[in-house]
Write a protein that binds this DNA or RNA. Sequence first.
DNA 1: GCGCTTGTTAAAGT
DNA 2: AACTTTAACAAGCG
Length: 264
Amino acid sequence: MPELPEVEMYRLYFDETSLLQKISDIEILHPKVVGGQGELLKEQLTGDQFTGSRRWGKNLFVNTKLNQTLLMHFGMTGNLEYSNASMELPKYARVVFSFQNGFNLAYVSKRMFGRLGMVTDIESYISNKSLGLDALEISEEQLVNALAAKNKNIKGALLDQTVTAGVGNWIADEILFQSRIYPTSLPKNLHPEQLQTIFEKMKEIMKVAIEVDAIRADLPAHYITHYGRKTASIHCPRCKNEIEKTEVGGRGTYACGSCQAEYS
DNA sequence: GCGCTTGTTAAAGT
DNA sequence: AACTTTAACAAGCG
């Protein structure tokens, strides 16, 4: 589930549960998610404490008392679960941090696209990956310029983490639905006011999604995503036409062909 | 069994 | 050379 709002939930959850407790043990249940860094992870974190966290797009960085930085990325499926060590571990737990207070934090990744590992520092990681500014932080001018610099369709540009970090598949669809712009449109063909609308809708959708704790069913009824993404027939909350399911940039894409205009 | 999936990236293409 | 597009990754789910 993790796009920016979900990862923000995980960050808050992490801070509420896992800070300032001594890490007594780390269990790697699936080496692949730590990219062969299992031993390194144990060496660098056992005995240490988590002191705080910072989110950049879909990346969650965790700092420790001994000044180490751990990066968690959740891929297409993943979350964190904190529980008493006497409880059964969650299904698909891949890495488990045990704390001295008898509780543990499980990094859960069902489809194994998530990654967890040590990084030297946040800034150089972001710069190496060429990540754009976080979608909650980026200014209108910065977003508009970054979009205009891309020569690909607007949906692909919004999903491009070097443009802005944090937009995922459903949010890209929702931004374009609310902006009334068809996903295959090219940024260079959009009017300045339309790019401004995209910026405003992106900010609003992120804010609203965080307010409802990233639970999609709790999104407002005028959001297309509110109705789910695989129901047989979804109707446009504006014009009642059937929502189209297509593929744009290799991703399943939902859009209203009658009230989203195409500028290709 | 088939096709789908909320992400990223290496490889291929332009 | 630099940017864009595609295929692949893994595995559960309906």
